[in-house]
């Protein structure tokens, strides 16, 4: 927290520079990464050939985004159903890296997410229920651990946010992704009240978008420059997936804990390997967040507390995320909780 608070001070450039050295994802790395997105075939964690070739066959038949609005044409009859699996057994909240969660960092940097939004936020969940039940007492079970829950937009198939939007500024595409039209949003934040995962954010002030962001084309499927007074959230990077790339968060995860895939193909990948979605979910008793609400999210979790990444669950704490605009102390930033 202190790191980014400091950044608004005049003498913070030193801190920011130090942070840059500390964190694995540097701006240069990212630009390279973004360049790779544009130039097909460049090095980097690619979606394996099976998906990539399927993507190509769709792309070659016309405009990639055409199946956003119109999936009646025979060429795009096969509609992708993007999904995500987060393997919590591998997620150590980047404790082993000694950095802020790299998924959040890469997403923030890649989308130029303004402070203090974290479209994919890594929550630390207390695993000792006895402590909760008897506050102030020693837990009867000598277990005092935590787990990390990286939480992107859950891409609900029965999305409460879409239901309540008065102007249709947020909608679910045939591919199953909920997107936001910044140019139609009236900024009443009804969707934020409706989202049971708190995955929606508001640009309370003029968002601190760096100049570099203006060179990247922004669309509801790939939001890079946000406007004041509208709602924003994780866009699930379908544009990158179509280009054969994993989303920023999945690319950046040092433990390869994030899988991105397509239910239509029944395949998902974390950049290191490919899994069959149905088998993988069943084998590891995957769950979804707040499943009982009937929102039918497309993000699945394999329960764990970083044990396969060698994390001791009793080690708690997550490093704060730094923002790409930290270089620019003039930019207006705001704290999330109103303190």
């Amino acid at each position: 927290m202190t790191d980014r608070r400091l950044s608004s001070d005049a003498n913070s450039s030193a801190v920011a520079a130090e942070n840059d050295r500390k964190f694995k994802i540097s701006r240069r790395y990212l630009l390279k990464l973004m360049g790779a997105t544009a130039a097909a075939g460049a090095a980097g964690p690619l979606i394996p050939g099976v998906i990539a070739s399927a993507v190509e066959s769709i792309n070659s038949s016309g405009d990639a985004t055409s199946d956003l609005q119109d999936n009646n044409s025979p060429a795009s009859a096969r509609v992708r159903r993007w999904m995500m699996i987060i393997d919590q057994r591998y997620c150590d909240g980047c404790q082993s890296q000694g950095t802020a969660p790299q998924c959040t960092q890469a997403c923030n940097d890649g989308h130029y997410v303004p402070e203090p939004m974290e479209w994919i936020e890594v929550y630390e969940h207390d695993l000792s229920p006895e402590k909760e039940a008897y506050p102030g007492q020693e837990p009867s079970i000598p277990f005092d651990g935590t787990q990390f829950i990286p939480t992107p937009c859950q891409q609900c198939q029965n999305a409460p946010c879409v239901n309540v939007c008065p102007v249709g500024a947020t909608w679910t595409t045939p591919e199953g992704i909920t997107l936001i039209d910044q140019d139609r949003c009236i900024g009443y934040r009804m969707c934020m009240a409706a989202c049971p995962y708190e995955r929606r954010f508001f640009t309370w002030g003029e968002p601190s978008t760096p100049a570099a962001a203006h060179h990247v084309a922004s669309s509801p499927e790939h939001q890079v420059s946000l406007k004041k007074g509208v709602v924003a959230k994780c866009d699930f990077c379908p544009e990158m997936a179509r280009a054969g790339k994993l989303p920023f968060c999945a690319q950046a995860c040092p433990q390869n804990a994030i899988y991105y895939g397509d239910f239509e193909e029944n395949l998902a990948t974390n950049g290191a390997g490919v899994v069959s979605i149905s088998e993988f979910l069943a084998e590891h008793s995957a769950t979804r967040l707040k499943e009982e609400l009937g929102t039918r999210p497309r993000v699945y979790y394999i329960p764990g507390h970083g044990e396969l990444a060698g994390r001791d669950p009793k080690t708690s704490g997550r490093r704060p995320v730094t923002w790409i605009d930290d270089e620019n102390p003039e930019t207006k930033t705001w704290a999330r909780d109103g303190q």
Binding site: C165, R184, I186, G187, M190, F202
Partner: peptide, 23 residues
């Protein structure tokens, strides 16, 4: 007062969706 984009208030008439409690 509570709208982030008060100048778009008319969108509720232009694009109003009956599913929304706000409408």
């Amino acid at each position: 007062f509570d709208m982030g984009r008060p100048e778009r208030a008319f969108n509720i008439v232009l694009f109003g969706r009956w599913e929304s409690p706000l409408v």
